[in-house]
Write a protein that binds this DNA or RNA. Structure first.
Lengths: 241, 241
DNA sequence: CGTGAACTTGAGCACGGTCAACGTACGTGG
DNA sequence: CCACGTACGTTGACCGTGCTCAAGTTCACG
């Protein structure tokens, strides 16, 4: 199914219903997200379902596709020659990834669990962006947000201890996924992924979650869900106490 | 001197010699850097000399100026409510900083030693970029490079021990500043700045430099210069051994 | 059920942090 | 020119967080 991506993206046969929604007005800065723009201009993008722990692209691969996570979770990783791994970030449902201003990817993207993706042509987006200042701003903005996120994460890895890192991580996840009733938070990724994202080991993750639990800050029904019992305490940890 | 910046940047009185060099051709991707473009289009930018440990802007300040480091070194910091500090990166002579796609700065910029800056109007750059695809690409490229750098630094903070971090730091500095004859490397910043950049303490920096010295990898004439005696060994440490 | 992967917990250790003392360089004023 | 003060750097002794290694436990899935 992957091999059909390029074809379908550059194929205009099924362009019947598209014109009505393809043009994004240049004037208003409003609600049109980059994601929506991609869906509107490339409505027949390929969808693919991938099993867990599948590599979507690796460091060095060409950047001719942009992806939207329809369902599931992605991790963006850097692998070192010595076999170490760092998880730069996770990409959640409804978010895009693979948007980068270089000809080669500088990280790999892998599925965490089962994932459904929509893939879009980078070349077509670029051509559309050339004549549309709003879209350019959306792209700029997406990359800038990634930069801000990375810098925030640098602060976390540079200054925070394990409890603070976990608190920061849970809170950011809660902001993105949203909390279910009772402050329930689903953790799509495993302990090892969290460890590699926070610069800790899997054992330290377990122990620190336990410490937070004993402190009455979180509750742990099972390994993949969490109840944020005391949000103010978590926030205090994240901005540091 | 700072108060005259805005005035001079928007002032076209002295436009006599400019037209010949102001226009950057839209077609070739070649040698024109963003820095050169700024110098060409805003030749009468204000220069200011600042003493060491001066804050140029703080988190939350408006992003209406872009700066070029004419001489000296800048550090880009994040300060936390609890009084901790992280040095995101250093900006060396000939490099620009302050270019960000948000209305407010998300970090502060401070002089390390005595510094001479040139400041340019962000608004004017944006107006020029609106009609010039090459300049837009330069801006994009500058921000993307910052993102790549941040992600590389995340890998360092997430995976490397103190020796590896120092090796990576020295090598990157050598690539940017360049090595003088005999592999001599000047360190413009103090130990505390290096520590806050690498997520270590000042004592660990001292001890680890000593360890590298005893291992025959570097030589330390004094606190602000370094001889990279064994570059291959440093590289092995940086990519990990 | 049985099997394997993921998670958890414990015991011991090491790296880097903390605290404290000392050394060095530079700048100022006597 | 030296005496002094201050900021920065270095070194040592001790401690604690988080890592390593190893043994269980739980869970999902065949």
């Amino acid at each position: 199914m992957q091999s059909t991506a390029r074809l379908d993206n550059s194929n205009s046969r099924f362009s019947g219903p598209r014109p009505a929604i393809a043009v994004v007005p240049d004037r208003h800065d409003g609600p049109v997200t980059l994601c929506e723009f991609l869906r509107n201009t490339q409505p027949f993008s390929v969808r693919e379902s991938l099993p867990r722990n599948t590599t979507i692209y690796s460091e060095g691969d060409s950047t001719d596709q942009i992806y939207e996570v329809v369902s599931g979770t992605i991790r963006l990783c850097k692998h070192t020659p010595g076999g170490r791994r760092h998880v730069l970030d996770f990409v959640l449902a409804g978010e895009i990834f693979g948007l980068i201003e270089h000809s080669e990817h500088t990280m790999s993207a892998e599925t965490v669990g089962d994932v459904t993706l929509a893939s879009y042509s980078r070349g077509r987006l670029d051509r559309l962006a050339a004549g549309n200042a709003v879209v350019r701003r959306r792209i700029q903005s997406a990359i800038s947000d990634n930069l801000l996120t990375a810098q925030q994460q640098l602060l976390i890895l540079g200054c925070q201890d394990s409890r603070e890192r976990l608190a920061s991580f849970f809170l950011r996840l809660a902001e993105r996924i949203g909390l279910e009733p009772g402050n329930r938070l689903e953790l799509p990724m495993g302990r090892q992924d969290i460890a590699d994202h926070l610069g800790l080991t899997i054992e330290t993750i377990c122990r620190t979650v336990r410490i937070l639990h004993r402190a009455g800050v979180v509750s742990v029904p099972n390994a993949h869900e969490l109840i944020l019992t005391d949000l103010p305490a978590l926030r205090a940890l994240a901005v540091e106490g």
